[in-house]
Each structure stands twice: as C-alpha cells, then as structure tokens.
Amino acid sequence: MAALTEEELIQIRRHLHEIPELALQEKETHAYLLDVIKQMKQDYLTIREPAELPTALLVLVKGSQPKRTIGYRADIDALPVEEETGLPFKSKHPHVMHACGHDIHMTVALGVLSYFSEHQPKDNLLFFFQPAEESESGGKRAYELGLFSGEWKPDEFYGLHDNPGLPAGAIGCLNGTLFAGTTEVNIDVWGKGGHAAFPHQAKDAVVAAAALIMQIQTIISRSIDPIQSGVVTLGKVEAGSIRNVIADHARIEGTIRGLTQKMIELIDQRLAEICHGIELSFGVKVDLGLNQGGYWPVENNPELTANFINYMKGEPDVEFIETKPAMTGEDFGFLLAKFPGTMFWLGIDDDSSLHSATLKPKEEAIYKGVTAINGFLNYRMDQ
C-alpha cells in the first residue's frame, strides 16, 4: 500500500541507521528526512520546519473531506551507545547508535506518509518527526512551544514503538497504560561532619541517608494499592571521604516508575513526607529534587484504543498480540495527556533488548507496519 517500495524503505532505514544523533542534535537526520519527503508528491503536503525546535519536522497532509486531524508521531533521536552489531550499515558516528530502533520508527512513518502523498486521505493527517525522545523531553517541548495549534492541532494522536519480543511485523497493544511514567529522584542529605570518635558532636549524614533509604522502600509496599504497580529504585549513593570522619553530606539518586500520573504524584508526595520526617528525626537538612519532564505514563485513550485493537484483530493480514504494560519510559505519554490517542508496539523479533549495543531489528517488520497503519488510518477516516 505504500508509495515507497519495501526495498526503498529498507534502504532508507539503513541510511538512517548510519547517521544516529543525540537529542536536539539531529541536524543530519532532519536534513535526510526532509530530502526524502520533498521527493514525494507535494499536492497535499505542507512542510513545516519550526525555528523554535529546529530539528523537528512537521508535515500536514490535506484531507479531501476533513472531519478531524489525525496525528502520527515518530521520534528521531538516538542513544550514546557504541554499536556492536557488525552490520555493514552500522553507525558512522562514534559512541552513538539507534539502539532503541528510532530508525525503524522514522522509516515506517515515511512509508505511511508516502502512501498518503499519493492517495489523498479523507481527514487531515499531521506527521510529527520528533527530536529528543530519549532525553530532553522533545514532545513536551514541542507542546509548550505551541507547535500543535491552529491547523497543526491534532484531534487524536498515534505512534508506535518497536518491540524485540514480538514477531517481526506483529502489532501489539493494550487498552490502558502501555508504558510507565518515570521521574528522576535526587536527594541531598546535609548534616554536620565530625570525628568518628565523637558522634554526639556531629549529625551523621550517612546514618540519616541509610534510614531514609530504608523508609523509602515502604512506599511501594505500604502506600500503593498492591493490585497496581509502581517502582522506586535508588541506584546510586555517595557519602564520606575517609573511614574515621563522620560525613556531613550524602547524595542519593534514583528513579520512580508508575503506571498512572496519579500514582507518580502519590509517590512524589510520600517521598517528600519521608524526607521531612528524616529532617526532624536526625536534625539534618534534606533537599529532594524530582524531575519528570515529559516522561508521563503512556495512558492509551479507552475509546480510540478499543477501536484500534478491534481493527487490528479483525484484519487477516495483521498478527495482533495483546501485550502487558512495560515499566520503561516514553515521552509520548505527555502528548497523550494533552491529546487523546494510542501508542502501540511493532514487533521486530530480536534476541537483544532495546538500548542494547547489539540490537538488530528484522527489517521485514517495516513494510508490514506501514501496511497495517495505512489500513487502520483509512478505516478510521471512514468512521
């Protein structure tokens, strides 16, 4: 169904794989995407390069009888990973790799866009090639910069993420939260240093931090509904300089994961309360820093997602798999909090995990993904 052939899409994907760039640095990627899009039929297309977010790219496809504007998002940045795939088209940029499969995401979006550049859709379609998903909250930036206003405002938004654990080309989804929201946790405990032999003259930051860490572990076990899911992981602790000096400072760094924004806000609240309690108990000062940015839970819209799943289940050429929530983060969650929509999986069948230096997606997933999405969008526009 795509105007671009399967072989052309594979070649596009391989070139994108060779030129990975980090968040907000995607200049070469942007230029290549623009070049591919400008080679498409332009009759229905309006291309926008926002100066406020210069590596972003938006394309509006004018519908013939528009009732709505349907948004489709593809993220374009890569990760600071040294590639170890041995592929002939491996990354040309040292220490940077499309280890999360955003090259697949972009290629599928180009395939869908090329089809609708040749076959005018009934509704308007908005394609958003988004920078800075892996860090810097690109979706949130775009929203707060006002990029989705006027004719560029979607009534509903869709996007995919590749999944190594699903067969190549399979579509996975669930009605509910697909990805957890994430929040960075930074805690500084400030006490009073002193000699190890005179602890009563000091305020031990290590002891206070140890008590804080243990109390934080009770948030999930005692403040969260056991039927729901949340995670608080404290992965880094630093304190002290020598064995016989009581430390005046301890640093704790970690992460929160939650399946709803309400749950994350509850965990945030309990963290703040526990930190205040430690201040009172140990006579120390505790500075709590929480940074969520745009990494909200990816909460799929119930009605739109049921419609999406019903289509995919009923399509004989689509292998649909109902999936479970994942505790990984995705900044599409912020956009789904602002616009109703659905995120879904595209299977890429690989033994390596996402963010792995050896990730090698099966390329037959690309054309199958394009075909499934084209079919769904045509189905949606007939409703």
Rank of each mutant, 00 (worst) to 15 (best):
H105Y: 01
F129Y: 12
D188C: 12
V189S: 11
G193M: 11
K140E: 11
G86F: 15
T85R: 09
A180N: 02
H93M: 03
Q120T: 09
H102L: 08
K90P: 04
I104E: 01
D162T: 15
K122L: 07
G193N: 13
V185K: 07
A99M: 06
G169Q: 02
L87V: 13
E134W: 07
D188N: 15
D155I: 12
L174K: 06
G169A: 10
F148G: 02
G139N: 01
H161K: 11
V108H: 00
G181N: 07
H93F: 00
F157N: 03
N124D: 15
C100I: 08
L147Q: 09
T107G: 00
C173G: 06
A142N: 04
L113S: 01
A170T: 08
T85L: 15
T107S: 05
E136Y: 14
H102F: 05
T85W: 15
P121T: 12
S91Q: 09
T183W: 08
R141M: 14
C100K: 00
K153D: 04
E118D: 14
F116K: 14
K153I: 06
P167H: 08
G176L: 09
Y143G: 00
H161Y: 11
G86W: 14
H105A: 05
P154S: 11
D103R: 05
N163H: 13
L125V: 06
Y143M: 05
A202H: 11
G111Q: 03
G172T: 04
G139T: 05
T107D: 02
A132G: 05
D103N: 09
A109E: 04
P199N: 13
H195C: 10
P121R: 10
V96H: 02
G176M: 06
L166W: 08
P131A: 13
G146S: 07
P167S: 09
K92W: 00
P199L: 14
V189N: 12
G101L: 01
E156C: 15
E133P: 03
L147D: 07
Y115P: 07
I187F: 09
G159V: 01
H105M: 01
M97F: 08
C173L: 02
S137R: 03
A202R: 12
E118N: 14
S114Y: 04
N163P: 12
K153V: 06
C173I: 05
E156V: 13
M97N: 00
D188W: 09
H200L: 11
S114I: 01
A168Q: 07
P167L: 12
Q120F: 00
V108A: 00
P131D: 10
G159R: 00
A109D: 01
L178G: 01
H161I: 12
W190C: 12
H119Q: 14
H95L: 06
V112H: 01
K122R: 11
E134C: 10
F127C: 03
P167D: 08
K192H: 14
H93V: 13
F127M: 11
V189R: 05
W152V: 06
G150W: 05
